[in-house]
């Protein structure tokens, strides 16, 4: 409905003003409205953290944040008058577009990913899986204690295969199906052959535990990857929103510095 009002106002504006631009009265009005909308949209982040707030339910705030965000794009477009010569303003428009696009991406992800997450989700939370992994690691360590050097090397190798590593979350996000971000399992045949005979039974148990550990690990990665997908778009959306504030300040400074903006009708 608001979009229809905007379009109708634009049609009238274009009829009356042969040179549509951001500095015309209607262009200024569009700019003020878009500024107000952006401020309102920023308040969602505050409301999200104010648990005791009585200003409506958070879900409603989120829905409004999405719809008004999309509307803001069109209001800003009307403000530009479809003219992009001012570099600061053009960069600002690009950033606004990226912010809104990333927000739409987030909305789409929240609509589609949870269903996929449900399919891979186990009855264990990630924290529980992490506890179990540590339990298994502890069991493996106990098995490997006071064993031969070969045995302990195998243990070290098996443990390194589930080691997260640096920036594991980001690598998990972009490597997709290639889960298991630890060291790739290498051929342990040579090491296995050097394990003393009396330790072979424990070695078998060690491998069983390692297999269990890896299966748990894969389950955790599958769950966490979808959670990371649900989260990564915020690493675009939030920083760009911050940049948006800085660029808006620059744009307003330029407008006030170089342009005379009279607030009252002079005739």
């Amino acid at each position: 409905m608001l979009l229809a009002v905007l379009i109708a106002s634009w049609v009238k504006y274009e009829e009356d003003e042969p040179f549509t631009h951001g500095g015309s009265p209607m262009g200024l009005l569009y700019g003020l409205i878009s500024l107000a909308l952006i401020v309102l949209l920023m308040f969602y982040g505050i409301r999200k953290r104010a648990y005791r707030s009585r200003l409506g339910k958070l879900e409603n705030w989120l829905q409004s944040h999405i719809y008004l965000g999309v509307l803001t794009f069109f209001v800003i477009l009307a403000h530009t008058g479809f003219r992009f010569e001012d570099r600061v303003a053009t960069i600002l428009f690009v950033v606004v577009t990226l912010v809104i696009a990333s927000g739409i991406l987030g909305a789409v992800l929240y609509k589609t990913v949870p269903r996929a997450l449900t399919e891979v989700e186990s009855n264990l939370t990630n924290d529980e899986i992490s506890d179990q992994l540590n339990q298994l690691g502890k069991a493996m360590a106990r098995l490997s204690s006071q064993k031969s050097d070969s045995f302990q090397q195998i243990y070290s190798r098996l443990m390194s295969e589930v080691k997260p590593g640096i920036m594991a979350g980001w690598r998990l996000l972009f490597r997709g199906g290639r889960l298991g971000l630890g060291e790739q399992p290498k051929d342990l045949s040579a090491k296995l052959a050097r394990v003393p005979l009396e330790e072979r039974e424990d070695l078998r148990q060690l491998l069983v535990l390692s297999r269990q550990q890896k299966e748990l690990h894969i389950r955790l990665l599958a769950q966490q990857r979808y959670r990371n997908i649900l989260d990564f778009w915020l690493y675009l959306h939030l920083p760009l929103s911050i940049a948006l504030i800085a660029l808006i300040a620059a744009h307003l400074w330029g407008a006030f510095y170089y342009g005379k903006i009279s607030w009252w009708i002079s005739r």
Binding site: L32, D86, I261, I265
Partner: peptide
């Protein structure tokens, strides 16, 4: 295209 930032007289009513 060309845009403008300078507003001529006859601004926006508060």
């Amino acid at each position: 295209p060309v845009g403008i930032m300078v507003l001529p007289d006859g601004g926006l009513s508060g």
